[in-house]
Simulated assay, not measured.
Amino acid sequence: MTFSKIKNKDGKRIKDKSTIIFNKDIIISGIPKEAYQYIVNGNSAIEWIMDQYQIHKTDKEHREAKIIDDPNDFSDDPKYIFNLLLRIITVSLKTIDLINQLPKFEVKDD
């Protein structure tokens, strides 16, 4: 999973967070920027999922073992990670919407 790239006004390629390339066949687009306001562990929940559900190859210490940590092996559902990402996008948007509806927190000095 990675973000799509677009050119900025200077011609430099930058991340387009409105579009996630899930794999070579699946692209998720139209993600509102507000979805990235829901923060978990210092990152947006969406970016956290993208980071945690990457295929990781063996660490340098154990290269000869050729162990691959593939999150696709965690579930028998081949759409598990895809559906999880879609749910996280939805939860992020709804959470930010609910937070924005809360009254402003005020502390009264006595």
Rank of each mutant, 00 (worst) to 15 (best):
K57Y: 08
Q54D: 06
I46D: 00
I67P: 11
D97K: 13
L102R: 07
Q54C: 02
I99W: 02
N72V: 13
I14Y: 05
N41D: 14
P78F: 02
N23T: 13
I6A: 06
E34W: 14
N41M: 03
V40R: 09
Q101W: 14
V40A: 06
I6V: 15
I89D: 03
K60F: 15
K33F: 11
Q54H: 02
L93Y: 07
K12A: 05
L93H: 00
L98N: 13
I39A: 09
P32W: 06
N8W: 05
T95M: 09
T90K: 12
K15P: 02
I96G: 04
D10Y: 13
I26D: 05
I27N: 08
I39L: 10
D59F: 14
P32C: 03
M1A: 10
K7H: 08
L102A: 10
D76V: 09
K17W: 12
K24F: 14
E64I: 03
S4A: 08
L93R: 08
L98S: 13
I39S: 02
G30I: 08
E106I: 04
M1T: 01
S18V: 14
Q54I: 01
W48M: 08
T90S: 11
G30N: 10
I27A: 03
P78C: 04
N23A: 02
R87Q: 08
I39N: 15
T19K: 15
L86G: 10
D16S: 12
I21G: 12
F105G: 00
S75P: 13
D109F: 15
I39C: 11
L84N: 04
Q101L: 12
F105A: 00
K79G: 00
N8F: 11
I99D: 09
L84S: 03
I46V: 04
D25Y: 11
K57T: 11
Y38Q: 14
E106C: 09
K17P: 09
K7N: 14
I6P: 10
S75Y: 13
P103G: 04
K104E: 04
R13D: 06
D77T: 12
Q37M: 06
W48K: 15
F82A: 01
I89V: 01
L85R: 00
F74V: 04
L93F: 00
R63G: 07
L98Y: 15
L84R: 05
M50V: 01
I31K: 13
S92H: 12
I81P: 00
